[in-house]
Design a protein around this nucleic acid. Sequence first.
DNA 1: TGTCACACGTGAGTC
DNA 2: TGACTCACGTGTGAC
Lengths: 226, 226
Amino acid sequence: MMDDSSCSEYLPETHEILSSWCHNLQEVNCQLPLIPANSCYFPTWSQEFSASRSHSEAEKRRRDRINAHLSTLRKLIPTSEKMDKAGLLRSVVEHVKDLKERAKEMSTVLNTPSDIDEVIIEEEDESSNNNNILVKVSFSCDDRPELFSELNRGLKNLKLTTIEANITSLGGRIKCIFSLQSINVVCTTHSLKHSLRVLLARIATSPSTPNFRIKSKRQRFFLLAT
Amino acid sequence: MMDDSSCSEYLPETHEILSSWCHNLQEVNCQLPLIPANSCYFPTWSQEFSASRSHSEAEKRRRDRINAHLSTLRKLIPTSEKMDKAGLLRSVVEHVKDLKERAKEMSTVLNTPSDIDEVIIEEEDESSNNNNILVKVSFSCDDRPELFSELNRGLKNLKLTTIEANITSLGGRIKCIFSLQSINVVCTTHSLKHSLRVLLARIATSPSTPNFRIKSKRQRFFLLAT
DNA sequence: TGTCACACGTGAGTC
DNA sequence: TGACTCACGTGTGAC
């Protein structure tokens, strides 16, 4: 490498020759620094050189900063070894989207069981077409071990079959969404819904087992009827 | 821009002049393409030119790809407007770390199903004291409607009673933690654990019902055996 | 003014 | 051999 002090002056003559060359080389996409032909400012080689050097050094620092973060990301994203930069960023995008969605879902799940007891019963559309009555039930109440056996017993008494069940239990509260089908042909939709409402209201307000305690406020707790 | 067809041959003379210039310009960090002095291959200008052009175009495409992902990330990360690339990547790293930690915490709290199938069977301490074998099973696999009836049937066959069950289903995955008690007095702990492992491995790897589709990748889906 | 961040074209390396 | 990625030094516009 050239020492700064040994640099010669950047004379107009030198510039003219360079300019001419640059002109020729422009046509083949040469990246020679183009100095304006009418420029009257001629820095010394040492100035040019040190400016150029500091510029390239600054640019290197910038690149290093970016690449450092990229390699950090590479460690965070599994199976991103041996991926190129674009591929890495692509999977980072996917990961962030996925994690965001999951976080959002989690907060939805966390809020799921409502704090007030509720019983919502709605008749499914297709139930009017045949003898089978199909209802969808949303049901929130305090959770407790014996809840499911009570529920099962009650549904069996009403001759209801569980088609689908979505159950969330959190913080001592439980929310159940059931799709139920009646196999009792003599029962009307109205009376069935009434019986169901009574059943669920009884279960929801039934006192909890005295010695039953939820271990943690946030713990999932789910006991199947045995 | 020069038309390819009008390019002149890249003759040795031209190369010599260029080489000499390149030598001079090297000292000021010139990026002129350096052709080896002993090279005996002289491509035409048109070849040089089109190769250079396709190279620079490919490089531009690469940069565009990377930058497209970066701008996608910019949309995903709040308050990353008006940040430079390094800053953006820095906050992406933070975001990913944060979201990962939160997801991990959530799955710990909620007992979320892991992404890989697993069967963990451990014998409870008190089981050695009497004839009843008590085991705790942690079991993760893909969720599907018939899973529970298979599980129930299998456990019944092994003469196991469910003492406690903690079940979480999320995003098409299911995790079950069972406390099981054997009512088969002639069965040894070792053979029971083996049978259990075989049963769960079979259930975990059993193909899903062909027409069963999870509506959403992350949708909560929980079907009780009917 | 100088500093900063970005896009560019290029050399080198890999497959 | 081309097709590809990466690091580099440079030109340039913004503040």
